[in-house]
Each structure stands twice: as C-alpha cells, then as structure tokens.
Design a binder for these strands. Structure first.
Lengths: 151, 151
DNA sequence: ACAAATAGTTGCGTTTTACAAATAAATGAA
DNA sequence: TTCATTTATTTGTAAAACGCAACTATTTGT
C-alpha cells in the first residue's frame, strides 16, 4: 500500500492553498494566520487570548501582536473579563464577522464543488471518514497537540 | 448537517501541528516550510526550483532563499541542468535524505497510532475516502491551485 | 500580607516574506 | 547571425511574522 502520509500531505496542502487564496477575495484581504484567528474566534464563545493561541499552536506573544493588528483593522474586539481582569475576551466586530462569513462561504462553496464530482453515497462516506478521523486524532494523545511547540 | 469546512479545518490543523512538531525531533531541527521543501524534493525526480516552489504555493524568491539556507545546512544539492543552464535541479544530500526519512517515519508512526483506534474496515474506508477526495480536488480547477497567489 | 502562579504585553534580534529589479541563459524572428 | 523576448533564478530592500526574555497587572494560596 502507498504511503499514508503522502495522502494527507496532498490533501492538506490543497486545503491550505484554498485557505490562503480565500484570504484575498474582493473586500477581504488579510493574512492566512489572521484568517485562522478570525475563524477560531467566530467558532468559540468569547474565548480568551490563551485559548485561541493554544488551538492555533501559536506563541502567545506573536498572537498578542496579531490581535493588536486585527483590533486596529476593526475586525476584533478585546473585552476585559469582569471576574478576572487579567483575561481578555475576544469577539468579532460586525465587519470581522462579515469577513469570516465571506471566507467561510467561499471555502464551503469550493468544497461543494469538489464533492459534486462524487456520488451522494461517496460524499457521505468521505464526510463520515473525516469525522471519524478527527475523533481518533483527538483520542490519540501522542502528538498533534502543541506540546513541544517552542524548539 | 454540520459545516464541512469545520471538519477540514480541524483535520488539517491537527495534521499541520503534527508536521510542525516533527520538525524538531532529535537531530532534526528545521522549520516547517523547510520540512515541506525536503518532502517535495524527496518525492520528485530531481525537480527544478520552479516546480517545487509551484506545488508549495511559495513565491519563487522566498523559495530561492530557503533553498540557499538548506544548501548551507548541507541538506539539499543544487545541480545545474546541462541542457538548460538557467535551471537548477534539486536533490537531497545523504543527510537531507536522512532527515526527510526520519520525519516521514515519525509522521507515519503517528498516523498508524491514530488508525489503531479504528477497525481494519474503517481504516480502509478512510484511506479510500482521502484518496477519492484528492482525485476530486485535482479535477476541480476552481481554486486550490496557487492561482491568485500574490495578493 | 505576601510569595507564587497566571494572562497578557513589550523589547529586541532573527527569520520569513514578497515586490521590484537585476542577471544569465535560451528562444524566436528578422 | 543578431537582437528582442521570454524564462529561470538571484539579489536589493523593506515589511511582516516569529519567539525568547523580561515586564506589568491581577489573582490565588498560605
């Protein structure tokens, strides 16, 4: 059988390029990491800086500065948490939300196009497979988490 | 049904972190992009600079400098092509090959671990799904290729 | 009340990035 | 052949991203 990593590498590379391309559409023009940040903030319930930096596997100091940029661009709002004033809660502004939604729509549109080359059954199978894969990756504590992050 | 992009995002993020982590193991200590470069050179038959830069969606000038670094580190060899002296052919040195192999083994080891949480049937299904996905992504010319690369 | 832990920021030097322009070699047309 | 054009790669340069160390501010535990 062929190299499994190869399959993953090709798939994630393509999806990565898609993500990248979708950062510069029409009104939208942000960097790839910024797109990821918007995505994660949008997905979660007013997360803290640490939380988002963590899932993205980013150094907190780099993340801090990226947030500063996004705040300057008017895409993200930083709200101090009343019960713990060390913590800042992140949320998207209306424009940030708009951009995140635009990117999301664009990516889903592309994915639909890809799935259009399959039968409905194949599509279901593929989606179930990825879901299963994600569950198994979550189980496996070996790696994949930003453990040894800093060199 | 849930957002399809979400599934992809989670999967590729995990795999991305895995890739990142596997860059700094033991003797190996290179950046993520450098790891990708080594991987692609290893995979192909003495490719040119353009070719590798292209599949990685990298700007050729950035790529050029990364190659210079890898050559300095003694991991990559740049050989001028006799029949067209403008192009350079890329290949891995013994040490570059060793590092690429080490990373590859490590990643595959992790993937095996992930698959160990599935039945043999599920594993087969997942692998076939990813393969199918890759084929369909290749068909779709909408995006995913480094078309609009530069902003 | 105070040491220790936690969340986030800033200083600073290194690396990465990409546009513009340069070099060098091949190709095509006159 | 010669010269303009195209192609592959490199270099100049400046901006952006990165991450360690050190700092501030706040909370927690004793």
């Amino acid at each position: 059988m062929e190299n499994i990593r190869e399959l993953f590498q090709v798939m994630t590379r393509r999806f990565g390029l898609l993500n990248k391309n979708c950062c510069s559409i029409d009104a939208v023009d942000i960097s790839l990491v910024q797109s990821h940040i918007l995505y994660e903030i949008d997905k979660r319930e007013s997360p803290s800086m640490q939380q988002v930096a963590e899932v993205l596997g980013m150094d907190i100091t780099t993340f801090s500065r990226q947030i500063q940029n996004l705040v300057k661009k008017g895409l993200v709002k930083k709200t101090p948490l009343p019960e713990d004033r060390r913590v800042y809660t992140l949320s998207l502004t209306t424009e940030g939300k708009f951009i995140a939604t635009t990117i999301d729509r664009e990516i889903n549109r592309y994915l639909e196009e890809v799935f259009s080359h399959m039968t409905e059954f194949e599509k279901e199978t593929v989606i179930r497979s990825i879901k299963l894969l994600n569950e198994c990756m979550a189980k496996s504590s070996v790696c994949c988490k930003p453990i040894g992050m800093g060199k």
